[in-house]
Design a protein around this nucleic acid. Structure first.
Lengths: 204, 204
DNA sequence: AAAAAATGAACGAACGTTCGTGTTTATTTT
DNA sequence: AAAATAAACACGAACGTTCGTTCATTTTTT
């Protein structure tokens, strides 16, 4: 009998989490039944309760581990930060590409907000803070080249602007506005770096 | 008998919509039952079906009329646009204040995304375009003072940046990070106007 | 042999919707 | 103005499903 590195119990536990994750994303939390989870995880209905006390416990474990920040922060951490301009440019691209690759992380957070009234948000934020610090430090390290704005605020604005870029891109897909030019992301980078105002005449 | 300006039928119809609206916001769509809606609207269960063919039709009507854009666009339209700088400053404040006043509009949109997989988004976008045009025009009118970025993109970046400001403000309320300084919004305005980079020496 | 995991029938409760019936409002005919 | 008819609205029991959870039992893993 081939033995896995994980115990049998741990393996079905993971299968339950993965099945629930997929179903929550497809249908939301309330619309997903324990029977569906059991079926997709490949075990009988009652078996779930050997691993989780109830339905909400499954969601509670998922929301801590799969969250857009958990998805995006590692990407940003690995983006080289030689100077702010190239960092922002590269980081924006990498972040949007990653969200595009796995849009599901965002949806799980929305489910949390909609169906749990954001009850778990504080726990999530606390859970994630350590990962955000090194990236904030990237803005801090080049402070000499930046306006006098706290690095954490710069970071927050960065996340917000490009996160919303991705969200609106999603929203208008399949609408009459969908004639979106590919350079819009570049415009966003431009705004983040230099602002919307025309530079005073003669400037660089 | 005191007669209202609305017919009896129209009045209970509105009562149903209002009751459903409140309940959807409190619990989400799937977790709200027709019985709850009937009770809060003050009529019997079956009576709902004299006004709506089914549950989804109630939501479909709500999502068209109550949407963060519908809430925010009128505010922005009334903000004076003498020059871009004061316009952005005033508009950002007004927009955040309005979201703060009625946070529920946002949640309804999240419900749409989570529990209907954004199925209604194209309809919503089309529905709202006419209201957005005059505001985009505000950016366009002062094009001489702005970088060469399409006005619609400027508008989108504006909405995205300050919308996300509000969202993150919401998220960190009640967390250890909540020591947010009131000037963060000013920093966001600064970034939107001038960017994050320090101006070249000797600049304005 | 003991513990852990899997099974599926069963439970009571709640779900969205239908339906027959009664009641109120509106419209038409006297 | 009154009476008669039609249309709209309100009711709540009932239908067939499905829900989350429990449980006694069997199978598999330690």
């Amino acid at each position: 009998m081939v033995s896995s590195s994980l115990s049998k119990g741990e393996r079905t536990r993971q299968a339950i989490l993965e099945a629930a994750y997929e179903l929550f994303l497809e249908q939301g939390y309330a619309a997903t039944s324990m029977r569906q989870i059991a079926e997709r995880a490949g075990l009988a209905l009652g078996g779930i309760y050997n691993h989780f006390p109830n339905k909400e416990a499954i969601f509670g474990e998922l929301i801590l581990d799969r969250h857009p920040y958990r998805q995006v922060l590692p990407i940003l951490r690995e983006t080289p930060a030689d100077d702010p301009e190239t960092f922002v440019r590269a980081a924006a691209r990498a972040m949007v590409a990653e969200l595009d690759r796995r849009p599901d992380f965002i949806k799980l957070m929305f489910i949390e907000i909609v169906e749990f009234s954001g009850r778990n948000l504080p726990k999530i934020a606390t859970h994630i803070l350590p990962e955000a610090l090194p990236i904030i430090e990237k803005f801090n390290a080049r402070q000499g080249l930046l306006r006098e704005i706290p690095p954490a605020v710069l970071f927050r604005a960065f996340l917000g602007l490009f996160f919303s870029y991705y969200m609106t891109e999603l929203m208008i897909a399949g609408t009459p506005f969908a004639a979106t030019q590919p350079e819009v992301l570049d415009h966003f980078v431009e705004i983040f770096l230099h602002g919307i105002l025309k530079p005073p005449a003669g400037g660089s």
